[in-house]
Amino acid sequence: MFGSVQSGANAYAKVGMETGVVAANPHKLIVMLFEGAQIALNNALQHMQAGNIPERGKALSKAIAIIENGLRASLDKTVGGELVLNLDSLYEYMNKQLLLANLQNKPEFIQEVQALLRDIQGAWEEIAPKSAPSAPAATLAEQTLSGAYDALAPTTPRLMKA
């Protein structure tokens, strides 16, 4: 009647992921695509080691879809110049390697794609837009609720603190 605990956990994870997507800026969305592809590739390797061919195929198909319909499709070939063309070719190569990994049961092909994705993701994270200065550790509301803030307590002016 109520479903399993696992289905509830999956639903909760899906809501969390959807909320992350809605709140993410375009740069973060690309990072999420890299992370999703890596998760799918890790799953594919696990299924390959376990001999679970159908699940291996599903995981590789998911990784290919993320690379093709997410990362590759997000490239703007009209303004990116040679870099974008090189990335486009690299994504195409990755997808071919993943197809071969599935057909030939070659984990080293998956591992090669994982390494390539890690390198590109690292470079992508290096060019992340700078975020706003970080907020104080605890907000005024949090301090008030925890009792750490007392509106009536005397305070020392900021310039006087050591």
Rank of each mutant, 00 (worst) to 15 (best):
L100E: 13
K77W: 00
N43F: 00
I66H: 07
A138K: 06
A162C: 07
N102T: 04
T156A: 03
P133D: 15
T19C: 07
P154S: 06
S89N: 14
I66V: 14
R158K: 15
Q49W: 03
A24G: 09
N69C: 14
A23V: 00
I64S: 01
S146A: 15
P154C: 02
V79Q: 05
T144P: 09
D150H: 09
E142N: 15
S134Q: 12
G16C: 12
N25F: 07
A128K: 02
A162D: 14
M160V: 10
S134R: 05
P154G: 01
N52Q: 10
E82T: 04
M32A: 09
P154N: 07
A151V: 04
A11M: 09
D76S: 08
L152C: 07
P107V: 02
N52D: 11
S134K: 06
M160G: 05
Q46S: 11
L145H: 06
G36R: 15
F109C: 06
L117I: 11
A24R: 01
V79C: 01
E35Q: 07
S134W: 10
A13M: 14
P133V: 15
I53H: 13
L85F: 13
N69Y: 12
G122V: 03
H47M: 08
K28S: 11
G16Q: 14
D119G: 06
L117Y: 06
G20W: 06
T78S: 05
G3V: 01
Y91W: 03
N42K: 02
Q114M: 07
I39E: 13
K28M: 11
K77N: 01
G81C: 02
E68A: 13
L45M: 11
S7M: 13
A153F: 14
D76N: 10
E18L: 09
L75C: 03
A148R: 15
M48G: 10
T156R: 05
A101C: 10
E18Q: 12
E35Y: 05
Q104T: 15
L60I: 09
S7T: 12
K161H: 11
L140I: 13
Y91P: 09
Y93G: 04
A59P: 12
E112W: 04
Q6P: 10
G36V: 09
G81S: 08
S134T: 10
N102S: 08
G70K: 00
L29A: 06
G70R: 00
D76G: 10
L71N: 03
I120R: 06
A137I: 08
A59S: 14
S89D: 13
K96F: 05
G16F: 13
G122L: 05
Q121S: 06
N105L: 02
R56S: 04
Y91D: 05
N10F: 05
Q121H: 00
K58Y: 14
Q111A: 06
L33H: 00
I66W: 06
Q49K: 06
R158M: 08
M17Q: 07
S131R: 03
P133C: 14
L41H: 10
Q97T: 09
K161P: 04
A40G: 03
E92R: 01
N42P: 01
S89M: 14
E142Y: 12
Q111E: 15
E112T: 04
R72V: 00
E55H: 01
E68C: 10
Q6M: 03
N69E: 08
A137S: 12
G51L: 01
S146G: 14
M32G: 13
L159F: 14
Y12L: 14
N86W: 07
P107R: 09
S146V: 15
